[in-house]
């Protein structure tokens, strides 16, 4: 009988993980605030670059949080704090709202697809995979519109457009209002424009709680793939060229045959990463940083080599100033 008692006593050991694991954080407005503030403080990439005193935001916002407040009120405080980071890759996601920092309003609207279709491409332009494209300027220039890096580019798509425009004097790649997507597509494009590997940028990942704790810089090169197009290329950008679009623009700046034209990009060169609060809401913010080969951090936007903005008057008259300037640049 004593033996059975022993067995029963040992059995009780099983199932006692609650005693071993640290207790789950309570779900209160205060713990949610503290958790989000701390997660950002320890992992966000750009405090120093943006000159943000994150402690100041704690001191400012913590008194606004109390355990009696509603979810909506808490959301407003947390979203306000996150938007101080001025980063399009930062979001707080609740069942009833998603906070965001709108990069669209950092610059003028510099793109209207309808004008391009009506006055430059006509009805017969081709759609190959993610690209809308056709000849411009008496077939001397090829125009390729890529509206989102989320749309996958295949080898066939690349081979087809390069083959079609191989005899032109230059190419226009239009990534205005392209909000980003998969980095894989950045390489699929850049790998086709030089026969030799080109040093594009360096990438670093957050490695500790200090605001400047990063891994050593990893150098990223293009990996050339056939067929090539090595004639001059103009990349059109605006403030809504964000994230993967900015990364593509950063790479384009390093390619000897590519010129960036239009407006400064939206930036967003840090990879965003996600997490969850004690109340179940999720968030994301940047946890890497990307520098150009000279060590410049263009997280806040990559300036064009040639500034070109369409005026309201030109827009009314159906003119896309940026395309006009790009054609002039390539032909003359």
């Amino acid at each position: 009988m004593r033996g059975i008692n022993w067995l029963l006593a040992l059995l009780l050991l099983a199932g006692c993980e609650d005693a071993l694991f640290e207790e789950e954080k309570a779900d209160t407005p205060v713990t949610n605030f503290e958790h989000l503030w701390e997660a950002c403080n320890e992992r966000y990439s750009f405090f120093e670059l943006k000159g943000i005193d994150w402690d100041e935001y704690y001191r400012e916002n913590r008194p606004l949080v109390n355990d009696g407040m509603s979810d909506l009120e808490l959301f407003d405080v947390l979203a306000g704090m996150l938007n101080a980071l001025r980063d399009g890759h930062v979001n707080l996601i609740s069942p009833f709202n998603i906070s965001r920092f709108d990069i669209d309003f950092l610059g003028p609207d510099n793109f209207e697809w309808r004008i391009i279709k009506e006055n430059y491409l006509g009805d017969d332009f081709l759609i190959t995979g993610p690209f809308s494209h056709d000849f411009l300027a008496d077939d001397e220039v090829g125009y390729i519109r890529y509206s989102s890096f989320q749309n996958p580019i295949t080898d066939f798509d690349m081979a087809f457009v390069i083959s079609r425009y191989r005899n032109t004097r230059g190419l226009i790649i239009d990534i205005r209002e392209n909000g980003g997507g998969s980095i894989r597509n950045v390489y699929r494009l850049l790998n086709r424009f030089q026969q030799q590997p080109v040093f594009l940028y360096t990438s670093q990942i957050k490695s500790g709680p200090g605001h400047e704790d990063f891994t050593t810089a990893a150098e990223v090169f293009s990996e050339p793939e056939l067929p090539f197009y090595e004639r001059p290329i103009v990349v059109l950008t605006d403030r809504q060229s964000y994230s993967a679009s900015s990364l593509f623009t950063l790479g384009a700046r390093s390619m000897p045959n590519m010129t960036v034209m239009g407006d400064t990009t939206g930036g967003g060169l840090g990879l965003p990463n996600g997490g969850q609060l004690p109340n179940g809401w999720t968030y994301r913010f940047s946890i890497t940083r990307t520098l150009d080969p000279q060590g410049n951090n263009f997280e806040n936007g990559i300036p064009p080599d040639i500034v070109s903005i369409t005026t309201d008057e030109e827009r009314i008259n159906g003119v896309d100033r940026v395309i006009e300037d790009a054609i002039d640049f390539l032909i003359n």
Binding site: I205, K206, V220, L271, T288
Partner: peptide, 12 residues
């Protein structure tokens, strides 16, 4: 530390 586990990112 950064918990970057995205396996589709080719530069990492």
């Amino acid at each position: 530390y950064a918990y970057l586990t995205d396996v589709i990112n080719p530069d990492i």
